[in-house]
Design a protein around this nucleic acid. Sequence first.
DNA 1: GTCTATACACAGATAGAC
DNA 2: GTCTATCTGTGTATAGAC
Lengths: 233, 233
Amino acid sequence: MMNFAEFKKIVNLHIKSNSQDAFIENRKDIRVKKEKTVVKNLERIFDATLKIGNEKGFHAMSMRDLSEETGLSMGALYAYFTSKENLLVMLQKNGRDSFQQVLEQSVDKDDSPLENLRTVVKTHLFMSEAMQPRFYFTYMEGKNLNKSEKKIAVEHELNSDGIMTKILIQGEQQKIFKSGHHALTTALIKAMLNDWYLKRWKYAKLNVSVDEFADYLLDVVEAFCLIQSQTEG
Amino acid sequence: MMNFAEFKKIVNLHIKSNSQDAFIENRKDIRVKKEKTVVKNLERIFDATLKIGNEKGFHAMSMRDLSEETGLSMGALYAYFTSKENLLVMLQKNGRDSFQQVLEQSVDKDDSPLENLRTVVKTHLFMSEAMQPRFYFTYMEGKNLNKSEKKIAVEHELNSDGIMTKILIQGEQQKIFKSGHHALTTALIKAMLNDWYLKRWKYAKLNVSVDEFADYLLDVVEAFCLIQSQTEG
DNA sequence: GTCTATACACAGATAGAC
DNA sequence: GTCTATCTGTGTATAGAC
């Protein structure tokens, strides 16, 4: 089964196109018109925002901090977004969409629910590993969004939970998984998945690799969900 | 076995003494000297800080916001702490200590590892339920602490993880629990426990009570940890 | 012990030169 | 397309009256 190294090769192209997507979606708000310049600088701006924001919080990051980290002047920065809040929204949107897409595409109707469960768990985990700063940022800065953006974020989460819950239900119908409160099971699995990028320092200290974490997490999940012990790994 | 209602009766006294503890520990920095006044106003200040801070983040909360919410003037506020950062540190310290104490006391050497595991999980969960705003705040605002305070926070977490890991090891020694990476198991259990106060909206939507959550979480944990299926609940 | 008034540093944002 | 210089609001914190 897929490990992180293989996963990364496959989706790297997708991930790298992040700031290009952002350019297309925010064309009207971006004063600079040369695509190549925008993509390059937007990437610098995003990276710097994630770095500073994850250290001390987005709100505590000043535009002067951002100017220093990116090497762009304050004036130049405002050619790429209309306001600090606009920058926050761009960053959040941008991450969510590619995540949702990759997750949905990972499910295969012809696979067994067990296979799909494993795939979805690993896909979620590996994406968060490949884009750790972004996932961390999205989680921690969610409450700084305005009401309507917050609502969108919640909908995305419920949507992504739905993918997993659906698999659990199918598993029960096919008598592979036990019956249970599947939405609650999903919530618990998500909680464990999120911990990987939220408490990175802890797993580093325990010297656990992302592949080991994936296998261990799946052991836990399968011990609870599977009707009888099957071949593992 | 203990449910939330019973738990709350037992520890309520402990929880209510929070601002009194804070008064004793921060005497030197508090300009007001009448204990009764300090305890009353400190509680108002803490509650207001948790409320506003959890809505939009501690850094985004201005002292004018806090003044309005507490009904105290800016000048009066600064009689209870020396700076905004000092207020943050007071709040964080204050919560941690009583948590650690209650958790450690909940373990009983004469009980079986299984009993102790259940007790520790429920104690952690029920404390977070009884003091949800404080737990949420501590989690989300951890990165705003300075280096030395951050270090203390990490130590507390490792310490509390240690309590659970120890129980898992004992369980293995007594041939009740499976062998495994016990520290990793603990991390996963903690992740699920934390989710209860971090994603409250989700569990509210699912209409899951704290007691139901406790039982379900323990089912998951026991399915993974126990050597063979034993009587549950 | 609490208030009002204010100091003054720093934030986000923009104008206009290059 | 990027820069420097600057406007203006808001932030934390304090002084001094009551």
